[in-house]
């Protein structure tokens, strides 16, 4: 009993922070299911007396094309950058050459630049390629600037494959690509899951590229959400429903595959 008492402060702190953590989710959920009459600012903490889907329907009718844009952006960009990261990471982990560490570190630095420093040239370049204000331009941008992080995560991943597994392939006479296809790739599923979740989440949530490289109908969902929240006309309940819908895809991934999400978080932060 005294042990339980001694741990009371521990639980008090945990509960307090958990409330802090959950409050925004509570407000989003509760408000988005209120009827327009109940969804007033002064009653924002109260639970709805009846469940109403009005706000969800209203937000959906506005957001739908932008949600589709975001999927059309995030899915191909995630697949492409995972593939590139996998090949790069495999080479940096397993086929070092003279200067490969320097090249690796030079690539890695690309992860830490504030993207404002490349924004103007990027706009000019995409314009001259005819890719400005297209989903393709955004895909290309995310694939290119995704190279450092995907390469890093995959390099650390492949570095952990035991040497004898790779050497066994070498004795078979398989070369770089042979070993990649026959040995490394089949072992890569967890790596692809980690990188895929990480990239999808980042790309889905990204705002700077989205707002600068696209306009009007080409915009991803986060820009549309920002427009809704910035407008004085759109009601509170509709804003919360829109925020919920924009957050839902990455939240669902987190709930289903949280373990891999955390692994990506740690892998991205700790340079191997």
């Amino acid at each position: 009993m005294s042990k339980v008492l001694a741990r009371t402060p521990l639980y008090l702190v945990l509960i307090a922070v958990a409330i802090f953590s959950l409050v925004p989710l509570y407000i989003m959920l509760v408000t988005s299911f209120k009827s327009p009459v109940e969804a007033t600012i002064s009653r924002m903490w109260e639970l709805p007396s009846t469940l109403s889907l009005d706000a969800w329907r209203g937000a959906w009718s506005i957001l739908r094309p932008y949600l589709i844009n975001s999927f059309a952006l995030a899915i191909p960009a995630t697949l492409l950058s995972s593939l590139i990261g996998s090949i790069n990471g495999y080479i940096f982990a397993r086929w070092r050459f003279r200067g490969s560490e320097i090249v690796f570190n030079a690539l890695l630095l690309g992860m830490f630049i504030p993207y404002q420093i490349v924004l103007i040239p990027l706009v000019v370049t995409l314009q001259s390629m005819g890719l400005y204000n297209t989903i393709y331009g955004l895909v290309l941008t995310h694939v290119i600037y995704g190279i450092p992080i995907t390469t890093l995560i995959f390099r650390n991943f492949y570095a952990r494959i035991p040497n004898d597994v790779i050497e066994a392939g070498q004795i078979d006479g398989a070369g770089l690509l042979g070993i990649y296809r026959r040995i490394a790739l089949p072992l890569s599923l967890p790596g692809f899951v980690v990188v895929g979740i990480w990239q999808f989440t980042q790309i889905w949530n990204e705002f700077l590229w989205a707002v600068t490289l696209t306009s009007a109908g080409q915009r991803p969902v986060m820009v549309a959400l920002q427009n809704i929240s910035g407008s004085q006309i759109v009601e509170f309940d509709l804003q919360m429903a829109a925020a919920m819908q924009a957050a839902l895809p990455t939240l669902i991934i987190y709930v289903l595959l949280g373990r891999y999400f955390v692994r990506g978080l740690l892998a991205g932060a700790v340079k191997g």
Binding site: S21, L225, F236, I253
Partner: peptide, 22 residues
């Protein structure tokens, strides 16, 4: 852990929209 980590999966845009009201 899951309660403390889930905000990481959310966009800063969503965070901004909700905290603007809070």
């Amino acid at each position: 852990r899951n309660i403390f980590l889930f905000p990481l999966a959310i966009s800063f845009v969503v965070t901004g929209v909700v905290w603007q009201w809070l």
